[in-house]
């Protein structure tokens, strides 16, 4: 067929170029900070927790920081940044973006309250100079358990939400899958566990989250396979939507590469983690053991980022009909 179109906009034709790395980073960091909220709260709530689990305060502090960085990238993408206040003069029940804006608004204080509550006394003295805030932190301490429980849920909501936005876009078949939020949830949780492993000092915490992460990665891989399978068995547009990942053609090489990367990173991480969990460990982790643990955690983070980037970009290549 010979096609001639006069009057196309560069933002949508011949390929859609609406969202780029800024949104991908936002989605990654959003999912990661959700994962961190949940994982750090789980760390606090888990039974048999030893008092010297030092990462119990750094992670709660890290979560809002990462979310802020993510929102900074999202803000970079807004064409009218000064108009952002309109998000909070409206609530649109059918708009996932409106939900997102409000969720962030509610989750932020939960994160910060939890972070303040979880600060140990000595640390509090060092990093908080403002007496009012120090007082507030002191007041919050008794509610730490409650805040941790709330944060488990809030983290899950945040991580899911990052996938909900894309999944509602019926016009982009790759995104328009109910599995996508679950994929982003598992990926976000897994990334959260990975950061726990890296930041935690104690062997015990590291091994605990390594065990958790094995299950999370396995779930993530299964969900990812189901995601592709769902598209493959869906209508023509959905099947077409995943083609960039599997065509292997020159044009779509980066997408092919992303599948290869996921195919290496995630299974390798599982294997490494399995070895870590089953292996014999001395009282203190050896340097090489530590390195291996951190390396497998980094693999998980790479996998999480690759998923966000690949899906954000490939989704914009997908569409209904076109000119045939």
């Amino acid at each position: 067929m010979e096609l001639n179109i006069v009057g196309t906009n560069a933002i949508t034709y011949p390929a859609m170029h609406v969202w780029d790395w800024r949104v991908a980073i936002y989605l990654f960091l959003g999912g990661l900070s959700g994962g961190l909220m949940t994982m750090s709260a789980i760390n606090y709530l888990r039974p048999n927790r030893t008092p010297e689990s030092t990462c119990s305060w750094q992670i709660p502090v890290l979560a809002p920081i990462l979310l802020t960085i993510g929102l900074f990238f999202l803000n970079l993408d807004l064409e009218r940044k000064l108009n952002a206040f309109w998000f909070y003069l409206t609530f649109k029940p059918v708009s996932p973006m409106s939900w997102g804006a409000w969720i962030v608004l509610i989750i932020y204080p939960l994160m910060i309250l939890y972070a303040l509550a979880s600060l140990p006394k000595d640390v509090k003295g060092k990093i908080i100079t403002n007496p009012a805030i120090r007082n507030a932190a002191d007041t919050l301490q008794p509610y730490l358990l409650l805040l941790a429980k709330v944060n488990v849920i809030a983290g899950i909501i945040l991580a899911i939400y990052t996938g909900v936005l894309l999944s509602t876009l019926v016009a982009r078949p790759l995104w328009n899958s109910a599995i996508l939020p679950v994929l982003f949830l598992t990926s976000g949780m897994s990334a959260g566990a990975a950061v726990m492993i890296i930041v935690a000092q104690s062997k015990e915490v590291k091994l605990f989250f390594t065990k958790i992460d094995i299950w999370l990665i396995i779930t993530e891989v299964v969900v990812l396979l189901l995601f592709f399978y769902g598209h493959y068995t869906g209508d023509a547009a959905h099947r077409q939507a995943i083609m960039p990942f599997f065509s292997g053609s020159h044009e779509f090489f980066p997408y092919f590469l992303s599948i290869v990367a996921l195919g290496v990173c995630l299974p390798l991480a599982i294997v490494l983690k399995f070895l870590e969990v089953t292996g014999e460990h001395t009282e203190e982790l050896t340097t090489s053991g530590l390195l291996l643990m951190n390396a497998s955690a980094v693999l998980v983070l790479i996998g999480g980022a690759v998923i966000r980037f690949a899906i954000v970009y490939a989704g914009q290549l997908s569409g209904y009909g076109g000119y045939m």
Partner: peptide, 11 residues
Amino acid sequence: KCVGCKACITA
């Protein structure tokens, strides 16, 4: 009211 989030363009 438009914040330029571009979600509508992808939608």
